[in-house]
């Protein structure tokens, strides 16, 4: 009898203990027992993945970039006072910018030895390309021509471009007034900076160098914008294509833009062809010296 009583009591205790254990009675409020374990919101790590639809070709791309000085009612000629070969090697993730001083003497097919900036005036982009190809032996894939208004508008639509000005510039002709150092240039300021040849140490050579520097600054800012928000690539493509005349098909322009996001500016050298000042028919001209041939050879694989 005693054994059975003990057994019954034991069962009772086990049952009650089980119920207590399951419901949480005695350990806190029912609400507390039902709540999920409280976990602090804590970042467990960050990770990143990216892929951009770049050109996968190992073949370098050459673009002749021209700045046309035509202004309605002011300048009747279409002289290209800015002439640069811009190259990009997608495989090497590098490129080059090679500038030609506007007074460089060159053979313009059908027009003889003349200043190189006249080629576009005589025969548009086609003749300018032919002149550059004959001079350098490099085959241009595309051209891009910026006028004064288009260039200013493009820079403004991009919200300005940050340029590290290499030295102080004061030029009343181009209205360029800059301190040495970094500055975000508006469209108007960018035009003044790229046109200045009086307020710079080496005249037309320095101007061509600064034009290349501006292109490189655009690349730097493009990459910065892309890194902040990849969707900005559309804004850049839009600003360029609305304001610059070019034969780059839109599909290729999109691919080129994505390819440029992968090219660090320090893998793109900006140079100007070397030359001496000479005279042709009483006009001051630049005589490109033999050192340029080395630059053309170097640029063949798209990296200067």
């Amino acid at each position: 009898m005693k054994v059975m009583k003990r057994l019954a009591t034991g069962l009772l205790i086990v049952g009650i203990a089980g119920i207590i254990g399951l419901t949480g009675i005695g350990t806190g409020s029912p609400e507390a027992a039902q709540a999920a374990p409280s976990t602090p919101f804590l970042k467990i790590g960050l990770a990143h993945a990216e892929h951009v639809p770049t050109l996968d070709s190992s073949k370098p791309i050459f673009i002749l970039v021209l700045g046309d000085n035509y202004r309605k009612g002011i300048e009747a000629s279409h002289l290209t006072d800015s002439m640069h070969i811009v190259s990009l090697n997608p495989a090497k993730k590098g490129g080059g910018i090679l500038g030609f001083p506007r007074d460089s003497l060159a053979n313009i097919p059908g027009h003889g030895q003349r200043k190189i900036n006249e080629a576009y005036h005589y025969g548009g982009a086609k003749l300018a390309i032919q002149t550059i190809e004959d001079l350098t032996g490099l085959k241009m894939d595309y051209y891009a021509v910026a006028g004064f208004v288009g260039f200013k508008t493009m820079v403004s639509e991009l919200g300005g471009v940050m340029v590290n000005v290499p030295y102080p510039i004061v030029d009343s002709h181009s209205k360029a007034h800059f301190r040495k150092g970094k500055t975000v240039m508006t469209g108007k300021e960018a035009l003044a900076f790229t046109r200045s040849r009086y307020g710079v140490p080496n005249g037309d050579f320095s101007r061509s160098d600064n034009q290349g520097l501006f292109l490189l600054s655009m690349l730097t800012q493009f990459r910065k914008d892309f890194n902040q928000d990849p969707g900005f690539v559309f804004r850049w493509i839009g600003a360029v294509s609305r304001n610059i005349d070019s034969d780059v098909p839109m599909e290729n322009l999109i691919q080129l833009a994505f390819t440029a996001t992968q090219v660090p500016p320090n893998r793109v050298n900006n140079q100007v062809v070397p030359g001496t000042i000479g005279n042709k028919n009483g006009q001051s001209v630049v005589l490109i010296t033999s050192g340029a041939k080395k630059q053309y050879r170097k640029m063949k694989d798209g990296v200067l």
Partner: peptide, 18 residues
């Protein structure tokens, strides 16, 4: 044809903007 994606997982139940 392209992506630029970050993962910012966090332990806990994160509400919008948290």
């Amino acid at each position: 044809n392209g992506f630029d994606i970050d993962r910012e997982d966090a332990d806990g139940n994160a509400s919008e903007g948290e």
